[in-house]
């Protein structure tokens, strides 16, 4: 059977493109960020109203003008437990510069259990009781931890799925604090 040489060339080119694309995406995926998250970047963070553990009604808009680290977590999530003390430190360090860490507990545990969990980890930032609708607005939150970094202008700077290093988290915090700063200065 005689093969058309141009088909072989085209197939080889296509294979090369797929391999290059695959390697590129594999490198990108070493720092977890999903497609939905990429689409949310630069977009206004979905507004929400949730109850905090201490019974207060909290709106995302309450934090406008601050860099927000919005962390979706659950009591059954071990990686969440690792990064929460880092958030405590970051809140202490960058709070004076305008950082606000906000935790959203997305599990069926009772508020008492969530409260105990947070207290054991020394959480020094508001923890809100999550709702499915809020999770949906943020892309479904199919796994945890999931963290959104929101600039001072209320736009999503980055979204990270899964546990990443403390230094990567800190980089994102700096980005969130820097983003929208010009807008603030103009006001």
């Amino acid at each position: 059977m005689k093969r058309d040489p141009f088909i072989i060339i085209v197939a080889a080119m296509a294979l090369t493109i797929m391999l290059v694309f695959g390697f590129h995406m594999a490198r990108r995926s070493s720092r977890p960020i999903d497609k939905a998250g990429a689409q949310m970047k630069g977009q206004p963070a979905p507004e929400f109203t949730l109850q905090s553990l201490d019974g207060k009604t909290v709106h995302l808009a309450d934090f406008r003008g601050k860099g927000v680290l919005l962390n979706f977590w659950a009591t059954w999530c071990q990686p969440c437990k690792i990064e929460m003390p880092w958030f405590v430190e970051l809140q202490k360090r960058y709070g004076p510069q305008g950082l606000q860490v906000v935790g959203v507990a997305m599990d069926d545990a009772s508020p008492e259990d969530i409260s105990k969990f947070a207290k054991d980890l020394g959480v020094n930032y508001p923890v809100l009781i999550g709702k499915e609708a809020v999770g949906d607005a943020y892309g479904g939150v199919p796994f945890m931890p999931e963290t959104f970094y929101i600039g001072r202008d209320g736009k999503v700077v980055d979204k990270v799925v899964g546990l990443i290093s403390r230094s990567d988290i800190e980089e994102d915090v700096k980005k969130a604090l820097a983003e929208g700063q010009a807008v603030q200065a103009e006001r």
Binding site: V10, A11, M13, A14, I17, M18, F21, G22, M25, A26, S29, P32, D34, K35, F143, V161, G162
Partner: peptide, 13 residues
């Protein structure tokens, strides 16, 4: 082929 390559699922979780 290029569109097929690009439409591959982005490697995620």
């Amino acid at each position: 082929f290029t569109s097929l390559a690009i439409s591959q699922d982005i490697p995620g979780r």
